[in-house]
């Protein structure tokens, strides 16, 4: 396998080639060290074309498209604030008090792309596209016009997670039937209660 640039080098190359592109490196904590690049929606397709057609990279094969659901989380932090606190003798003094502040971090849906090169036999390069939130702004650009292998997999991410891919030639449900209304792979999906407990007759 020929040497693939590291994630930081790739970020620099992309930002130099596609003007206006915003690329963030997301580190990977596991031992596989496959770091990923988070792309912005506007320039995602231009970046994808650059990665596919650049003579040194030639990432012509998109192997996998995954949908991931990150739920809304709550960030709890302890901060010190100055407040007027009543002392034991009734007089109020200014003191530093520790308070817990909870902030809601909105969740999002994510599409993760794994790219390889059949020509140069290197890879993977991992791209990520994130939606704004999980409820009403769930659109990301589709990379099917760049790599045809994303066609069915993006449909599956739409079917099971509800991520809407702009520019997909045929976005409809693929595994569940037309008329099914839920997004089953989301973490907060509740299946219908049709389980019936039975026992063997004596």
């Amino acid at each position: 396998m020929s040497a693939l640039p590291t994630a930081e080098e790739l970020k620099a190359q992309i930002e130099a080639a596609v003007s206006g592109a915003v690329v963030t490196v997301i580190p990977n904590g596991s031992l596989s060290a496959q770091h990923s690049l988070l792309l912005d929606h506007e320039h995602a397709r231009a970046v994808a074309l650059f990665l596919r057609d650049h003579p040194d990279l030639r990432l012509d094969y998109c192997s996998l498209v995954t949908g991931v659901d990150w739920l809304d989380t709550e960030l709890t932090e302890k901060i010190k604030v100055k407040k007027m606190v009543a002392g034991p003798d009734g007089a109020e003094t200014e003191q530093e008090v520790e308070e817990t502040r909870k902030t809601k971090v909105p969740g999002y849906l994510e599409a993760v792309y794994h790219l390889f090169s059949m020509e140069k036999k290197h890879g993977p390069v991992v791209l990520r596209l994130r939606t704004a939130n999980r409820t009403d702004r769930t659109r990301v650009p589709s990379l099917t016009p760049v790599w045809r292998s994303c066609e069915f997999q993006e449909r599956e991410a739409f079917d099971l997670y509800g991520i809407v891919f702009d520019g997909h030639p045929d976005l409809r449900r693929i595994l569940m039937w037309e008329g099914f209304e839920d997004y089953p792979m989301r973490k907060d999906y509740v299946p219908p209660a049709d389980d019936i407990l039975m026992e063997a007759r004596p």
């Binding site: 008329g179 839920d182 219908p192 026992e199 063997a200």
Partner: peptide, 26 residues
């Protein structure tokens, strides 16, 4: 095909039939 599953979820004449089904609903 319903919005969340099949309608009806089961056919009671068949599923709860005493003679046919060797299992009993709890």
């Amino acid at each position: 095909f319903g919005a969340h599953g099949l309608e009806p979820a089961q056919n009671d004449d068949v599923f709860l039939n005493e003679t046919g089904n060797p299992l009993r609903i709890l």
